[in-house]
Design a protein around this nucleic acid. Structure first.
Length: 588
RNA sequence: GCCACCUUAGCUCAGUCGGUAGAGCAAUUCUUUUGUAAAGAAUAGGUCCAGGGUUCGAGUCCCUGAGGUGGCUCCA
C-alpha cells in the first residue's frame, strides 16, 4: 500500500470511530458514557469509553449500533475542523473528565486546540485528520468488545473498548474478513486438536499434554538443537526441577518474582521449603561454582533444555504461546569481559541460523533496557547497555528499543516472531548479566593468578519449545517440512493382499530412520488418501498389485502431486536427502 | 488479575416461548478387497462444565466457582 493510500485509510478509520461514537450518543444519549479516546490502528480502529452507572454494551448490541452507523453514513454529513480557545473547549467538554484531562495536556504543550464537528450533530476533541464527510466511510464493521485501562495503566479505571474496522469499499472489507477467517484456520489450537498434537486439561491449567505426534515434532526440534549446539561449542547439562528457597533469595527471584512461582514442601513441614524453578540459571550457576575455573576454559557455553514453571495470571495463558509449564532451550555462557562482544554476536547469528533452518521469518529484534525492579548498580547497567548497543550498531542489526523491559538482572535482545493473526511473540532472548555472577560469587582465575568475576549471558533461541511449535504450526498451517513432520510417510496398501510387502517397505524406511506408518484399515484407497492428506503427511506410498510385482512404491505428495511409481531405493534417497538437508517445504 | 463473551456425545455443532436432548464426522460390528481426496448398513454413545437458587418443571432464567476465547495489564 502506498503512503497516501495508507494515510487516507487511517483518516477514514479515525472518522469511522467518530461515527461510532456519534451513533452511540444518538442511540443511548450523551449521559450514558464518557468518551475517552479512539485512534485508528493498523487494521481498524477502537473507541474507549467509561460507562456511567449501570450502562453496559455487549457484542449483542452491535447490530443496533451498526444500523445507526449506516444512517449517519447515508446522511453523508460533512466533517469539519475548527480551532477553538481553551475556555471554549472547557465549556464544550465540561461534562467529560477525560477530555478535560486531554485539554490540560494540550495546554501544557502549548498546542492549538482542534475539534472536529460532524455537521452540527457531534463534536470531539481531535487532532485529525479526517475524511471530508461520513459518506466516505463506505464499509465499516464492529469487531469485538474488550476492557482497557485508561492510559494503559493497571492502576487506572478500566474503560470499555469497542474494536472495529473500516474500508473505502465493501470488497476490501469482505476481503479483510475473509483473510481473517482463513488465518483462524491456521490457529495452532485448532490444528493441535485436529492433527492430534497436544491437549490441555482442567486438571493442569496452562500445562501442555503432548500427544505422540506433537511430541515427535518436539523431539525433531530437540535433535536439531542438540546437533547444532554441539557444533557451536556448547555442552549440555540438566539441573533439578526445584531448589531450596534460599538459593532463589540469593538470585533475587524470590523477591522479584514470587507471585509467579510455584512453591513446594514436604509433608513434615508447614511452610514451603522449595521453589519450583521459573528459570534455569540458578541451577546452572551452582554447576559453574562447583569447580574452580581457569580463564583458559572460558567461554563456557552450558546449554539446558530446562522445564520451568511460571504461574501466569489466568487471563494471560494462551494456547501453546503462553503456558505455565514450558521447556526453555536455555544456555548460559560464562565468559571474560573481552569475550562478551563476540559471544553476543555469535548468539545472534546462531539465533538467525536456527530460524532460517526452521523457515520462520523473524519479525523484529528489540533491545530491552533496565526495568524498575532490578538488581545491580547504575554503572553496571550502563556498561551492559552500552555493550549491547555497540554489538547491534557494529553488526548493523535493525532493532527497536523497548525501554524498561529488560530482565531484572540485565538488558536483553528479544527476537519476536508473528502468529497467524499477526500478533508477535518473543522467542529468542539474549541477556547480558553482570549481577548474578556477583550474587553467586562466581569466579575464574586469570593468567596472573588473580580471581576474576565472569560475565554471564543467558540465552534461548526457540524461547520455549511450546511457543515455538505453536508458531511453527501456524506458519506451516500444520504442513511441516519433511524433516519436522511427525509422520513422514504413510504406506497405503490398496488391499490386504499387499500387507506383507507394505510391512517390508515400512521396515526399509524405519531402517533409514524415516518415521512411517501403514494404513491397513479395511477402507478404500481413496479414503486412506484423504485421511493421510488431512493429517498433512508429506508422502503417501500407495501399494497395489503392480507395485508388489515390480518391487516399487507409487508416491503421492500431500499437495496432490502424483510422482508415479518408482523403485523404493529412489524414494528413500529422495526423502533421506530432504531430511538430512532439512529442506524447507518443497510440498505445500 | 481486569472487561466482554463462551462451555450440549470423542470432534464440529443444532436445540424455538422454560415442558425430561438431536445431526454429521469419529468409534464398534457386519458386509465390501477397492488404483490416487470420504463404500454401505446396523449399533452404541450424554452428570447439557460444577455447585447453589427461582419455578409445578431449567440445557434454556439468576448467583457463585472452574476452564476457555477476544482484548487490557503483565511476560525472568
Amino acid at each position: 500500500m502506498n503512503q497516501s493510500k495508507s494515510d487516507n485509510l487511517k483518516a477514514l478509520r479515525h472518522s469511522a470511530e467518530h461515527i461510532l461514537t456519534q451513533a452511540m450518543e444518538n442511540l443511548y444519549g450523551k449521559g450514558k458514557f464518557y468518551m475517552a479516546m479512539g485512534p485508528a490502528t493498523d487494521d481498524g480502529f477502537y473507541f474507549d469509553f467509561e460507562p456511567i452507572g449501570d450502562f453496559k454494551i455487549s457484542e449483542a448490541d452491535f447490530p443496533k449500533i451498526e444500523a445507526e452507523i449506516q444512517k449517519i453514513i447515508k446522511a453523508n454529513l460533512p466533517i469539519t475542523q475548527k480551532n477553538i480557545t481553551l475556555d471554549e473547549a472547557k465549556k464544550l467538554f465540561s461534562a467529560n473528565p477525560y477530555k478535560l484531562e486531554w485539554l490540560d495536556q494540550i495546554k501544557d504543550k502549548g498546542e492549538a486546540i482542534s475539534v472536529y464537528w460532524t455537521a452540527d450533530q457531534f463534536v470531539d476533541l481531535c487532532k485529525g485528520p479526517h475524511v471530508k464527510s461520513t459518506g466516505e466511510v463506505v464499509a465499516i464493521k464492529l469487531m469485538s468488545i474488550a476492557g482497557a485501562y485508561w492510559h494503559g495503566d493497571e492502576k487506572n479505571k478500566m474503560l470499555t473498548r469497542i474494536y472495529g474496522t473500516a474500508f473505502d469499499s465493501q470488497t476490501e472489507l469482505d476481503n479483510y474478513l475473509h483473510n481473517l477467517e482463513e488465518a483462524k484456520k491456521r490457529d495452532h489450537r485448532k490444528l493441535g486438536k485436529s492433527l492430534d498434537l497436544f491437549s490441555f486439561h482442567e486438571e493442569g491449567p496452562g500445562f501442555v499434554f503432548w500427544h505422540p505426534l506433537g511430541y515427535q515434532i518436539y523431539q525433531n526440534l530437540v535433535v536439531y538443537w542438540r546437533q547444532i549446539h554441539k557444533q557451536k561449542g556448547y555442552v549440555e547439562v540438566k539441573t533439578p526441577t526445584m531448589l531450596t528457597i534460599p538459593v532463589w533469595q540469593q538470585s533475587g527471584h524470590m523477591q522479584n518474582f514470587i507471585d509467579k512461582m510455584y512453591l513446594a514442601k514436604t509433608s513434615d513441614l508447614d511452610t514451603p521449603q522449595y521453589a519450583i524453578k521459573p528459570m534455569n540459571c540458578d541451577g546452572g550457576m551452582l554447576i559453574y561454582s562447583s569447580n574452580p575455573h581457569s580463564y583458559k576454559e572460558l567461554p563456557i557455553r552450558m546449554g539446558e533444555l530446562g522445564v520451568v514453571h511460571r504461574y501466569e495470571s489466568s487471563g494471560e495463558v494462551h494456547g501453546l504461546m503462553r503456558v505455565r509449564e514450558f521447556t526453555q532451550d536455555d544456555a548460559h555462557i560464562y565468559c571474560t569481559p573481552e569475550q562478551v562482544e563476540d559471544e553476543l554476536k555469535a548468539a545472534i547469528s546462531l539465533c538467525k541460523e536456527i530460524y532460517k533452518t526452521c523457515g520462520l521469518p523473524l519479525d523484529h529484534i528489540e533491545l530491552s533496557t533496565r526495568p524498575e525492579k532490578s538488581i545491580g548498580s547504575d554503572a553496571v547497567w550502563q556498561k551492559a547497555e552500552t555493550t549491547m548497543t555497540k554489538v547491534l550498531t557494529q553488526g548493523k542489526i535493525e532493532h527497536q528499543i523497548n525501554p524498561g523491559d529488560g530482565a531484572f538482572y540485565g538488558p536483553k535482545f528479544d527476537f519476536h516472531l508473528k502468529d497467524c493473526l499477526g500478533r508477535t511473540f518473543q522467542c529468542g532472548t539474549i541477556q547480558l548479566d553482570f549481577a548474578q555472577p556477583e550474587n553467586f560469587n562466581l569466579e575464574y582465575t586469570d593468567k596472573d593468578g588473580q580471581k576474576q568475576r565472569p560475565i554471564m549471558i543467558h540465552r534461548t533461541i526457540y524461547g520455549s519449545l511450546e511457543r515455538f511449535i505453536g508458531l511453527m504450526i501456524e506458519h506451516y498451517a500444520g504442513a511441516f517440512p519433511v524433516w519436522l513432520s511427525p509422520i513422514q510417510a504413510k504406506i497405503i496398501p490398496i488391499t490386504d493382499r499387499q500387507n506383507d510387502y507394505a510391512q517390508s517397505v515400512k521396515q526399509a524406511l524405519l531402517d533409514k530412520n524415516i518415521t512411517v506408518e501403514i494404513d491397513d484399515r479395511s477402507e478404500t484407497m481413496q479414503k486412506k488418501i484423504k485421511d493421510a492428506t488431512d493429517q498433512k503427511i508429506p508422502y503417501m506410498l500407495i501399494i497395489g498389485g503392480r507395485e508388489v510385482d515390480s518391487r516399487q512404491v507409487s508416491v503421492r505428495q500431500r499437495d496432490g502431486i502424483d510422482l508415479k511409481s518408482m523403485p523404493l531405493a529412489d524414494f528413500i534417497g529422495q526423502i533421506t536427502k530432504q531430511v538430512t538437508e532439512k529442506s524447507l517445504n518443497l510440498i505445500k
